[in-house]
Each structure stands twice: as C-alpha cells, then as structure tokens.
Amino acid sequence: MTRLEAKERYLKQLGKELRRHAERDSILFDYDLHVSELLQEEAQQHSVEEWLELIHRRIGSPQEVAAMWREELAVTQNRTMLHFLLLNLCFFLGGGLLTFIHVFHGFAWVRVLWDMLTSVPVLIMGMYTAFWGLLGYEIGKSFGAGGRRLMQKTFFIALVPNLTLMLLVVFHVVPHAWFQPLLSTTFIVFCIIATVLLYPVCCLGYRWGKKQSI
C-alpha cells in the first residue's frame, strides 16, 4: 500500500505542475507506467517517504520533470511557429520574385505563368485563406487549448509582410502598373476584406484542430 500511495502522491503533484501543459494526460500516463515499473523492481519494503525519495532520485522530482516537459513544449512550439512563418515567407518572396521577373525581364514563360495566375485571383486568395485555416488547425491539433497564444503570435507575425505590401500598394509606393491586369480598385477592396477574414478563418481552424486533439 505504501508503494501505491507514494505513486499516487507523486503523480498528483506532477499533475499539478503540468496543469497547463497541452500533453498533460499523455505525460501522466507514461509516468504512471515508469513509476509502476520502478516500484516493482524494488524488492525491499519502504515507507511512503522513502518510496518518494527513491522515485525522485531515479526519475526526478515532479518539479524537475515538469520543467523538462515545459522546455520541450516551448522548443516544439517555436519550431512549429518557425515552420509556418518560413512557409508564409516563401509564398511572399515567391510572388515578389515572379513580379520582379515579369516587370523587369519579361521572359515568355513568365508572361504565360503571370497571365495564368492573374486570371484566377479568387482561386489564389481561396488557397491562401486555406493556408491560414491549416495553420490554426495544426496548432489546435498539436497543442490543444494551450496553443491559442501560439496561434495568435504566429498569425500576427506572419501577417506583417502582407500588410506592409498592401499599404505600399494602396499608397502607390509600389507602382500599380507592376501588378496589371490583376490590380484594380475592386481587387484591392477584396484583398482588404479577405485579410480581415484571415484571423477568423485561422481561429475556426484552431477550434476544429483542438476538437481533434481531445
């Protein structure tokens, strides 16, 4: 009984330390197995405090274990954010490079590609909006309720180059002629509305992903 009581006290304290961790239940399940195996290996009888001391010595205190997992979560979250930021930057730079080549070099294959893309602006906006929904979904699925701040941080950082370009175009710092025949007042208004809708789409994706993580 002292073994069982020691294990329950250890896991209860570990659960408190991990109360805001997205993988709390999974971690507790794994450590339940680890502690059970450790206690079964020990043939001698001990008091509850002695069992706890043994667990702390072999596995680590609840505070140490929780700190390790919080650090692991932070690294994983940063990696996830970096992946999405780089992917969004690739979209941005790819579009910028295509525009530059189209305006200043005018290769035949670039003109064909440009004409093809500018003929389906709604499709392009739809695909880009889906990207933001995917961002929210993946964060919600991977981190659950604990991923909301990560989703918000990733979204607003990734949106900076988009908003910067939009402002440069709206205030004619970037010539409208570069984006013809795509650019028009109607299309600019459409882009502004679509940009406003990106965050709700991202949140919907996050909520859907969070449900999948349960």
Rank of each mutant, 00 (worst) to 15 (best):
M1G: 13
R3A: 15
R3C: 10
L4Y: 11
A6M: 01
R9T: 01
L11D: 00
K12D: 07
L14M: 00
G15S: 00
G15P: 02
L18M: 08
R20V: 08
R20I: 12
I27W: 02
L28M: 03
D30P: 07
D32V: 10
V35F: 02
L38S: 02
Q40I: 09
Q45L: 08
S47V: 03
E49Y: 04
E49T: 03
E50I: 04
E50R: 04
L52G: 01
L52A: 06
L54D: 06
H56K: 12
R57T: 15
R57P: 04
G60C: 00
Q63V: 13
E64Y: 03
V65C: 01
V65I: 15
W69V: 14
W69T: 12
A74V: 09
V75P: 06
N78H: 10
N78G: 15
M81G: 15
L82Q: 07
H83V: 15
F84Q: 09
L87E: 12
N88I: 12
L89D: 12
F92C: 09
F92Y: 15
G95Q: 00
L98G: 02
G106H: 00
F107I: 07
W109M: 08
W109K: 05
V110K: 01
V112H: 13
V112K: 13
L113P: 06
D115P: 03
T118Y: 08
T118D: 10
S119M: 07
V120K: 14
P121L: 06
L123G: 07
Y128M: 15
Y128R: 15
A130S: 10
A130P: 07
F131R: 10
F131A: 09
W132F: 08
G133P: 04
L134R: 12
L134S: 05
L135G: 06
G136M: 06
Y137V: 08
Y137H: 11
E138G: 10
I139T: 07
I139V: 08
I139R: 02
S142W: 10
G146M: 02
G146I: 05
G146F: 01
G147W: 01
R149D: 14
M151C: 10
K153G: 10
T154E: 03
T154W: 02
F156Y: 05
V160N: 00
V160R: 00
P161L: 00
N162C: 15
L163K: 06
T164M: 13
L165F: 14
V170S: 13
P175V: 02
W178H: 10
W178N: 07
Q180I: 07
Q180S: 12
Q180C: 06
L182N: 08
T186I: 14
I193F: 05
A194N: 07
A194P: 00
T195M: 09
L197I: 04
L197T: 04
L198W: 05
Y199P: 09
V201W: 08
C202I: 04
W208S: 09
K210Y: 11
K211N: 12
Q212R: 13
Q212Y: 10
I214T: 09
